[in-house]
């Protein structure tokens, strides 16, 4: 089942309910920043790579939280995984490609991939493939704000803001303000 397929089931949903408030998200990010730093040896070898689009503002928020603890901001890269999707050849209309910007060498680094929602795991699989074109990191770790389950690949997150039980047809959305702050997350039930 492709994400595109689940999205097309939109008819007749109940209203979206909040599963994560702005305060919840801020607290979760602060905790995740501590966990990231404890898991390694500080921020020295750490670089963040946000998966566009949701992972982009989150990577910045996480980097801010890390900076408040360690007073150094880890470098931030942005990754667009569109060209590495496993369903590209099957789609009639190709999705728009956004710029990938990783302005540093990831070889030997501890790369922390950041995304907003972890679902099937296919996006992360594509991101791992993309990273190999940029170098050979020492470690690759994954941080997500929401883990909603239903993995289709053997992939798990190292740092999770909140685990949310969902049905496969549900729609989970993390909302961001214009300045990239997390406004919260909502869940729409499947019809």
């Amino acid at each position: 089942m492709t994400p595109q397929h689940t999205r097309s089931e939109a008819g007749g949903r109940s209203a979206a309910r909040e599963i994560l408030s702005a305060d919840d998200a801020a607290r979760a990010l602060k905790r995740m920043a501590h966990e990231v730093l404890e898991s390694g040896k500080g921020a020295g070898n750490l670089v963040l790579v946000g998966i566009r689009r949701g992972g982009e503002p989150l990577a910045h928020r996480l980097a801010d939280a890390i900076q408040q603890i360690e007073s150094v901001q880890p470098p931030i890269g942005l990754l667009d995984i569109t060209l590495y999707r496993d369903d590209l050849g099957q789609r009639a209309d190709q999705p728009e490609v956004r710029e990938t910007r990783i302005p540093f060498d990831i070889t030997g680094k501890d790369v922390l991939l950041v995304d907003d929602v972890l679902f099937t795991g296919r996006t992360i699989s594509a991101a791992l493939n993309a990273l190999t074109d940029f170098g050979r990191p020492a470690h690759v770790l994954l941080a997500v704000l929401v883990d909603r389950g239903h993995r289709e690949l053997p992939i798990r997150a190292d740092f999770v803001g909140k685990n949310i039980p969902t049905s496969p047809g549900d729609r989970v959305e993390v909302r961001f303000g214009d300045d990239g702050t997390v406004l919260g997350a909502t869940l729409e039930d499947a019809a």
Binding site: T82, L83, E96, R101, D133
Partner: peptide, 27 residues
């Protein structure tokens, strides 16, 4: 405009060490 936006995304690939993406593999 959408084509130009996509081209913006592709411009960076030419600056990579590995100048290749798998988008049209097998085509």
């Amino acid at each position: 405009t959408a084509l130009l936006n996509t081209a913006d995304g592709f411009l960076e690939i030419g600056t990579r060490t590995v100048k290749k993406v798998p988008a049209l593999r097998g085509k």
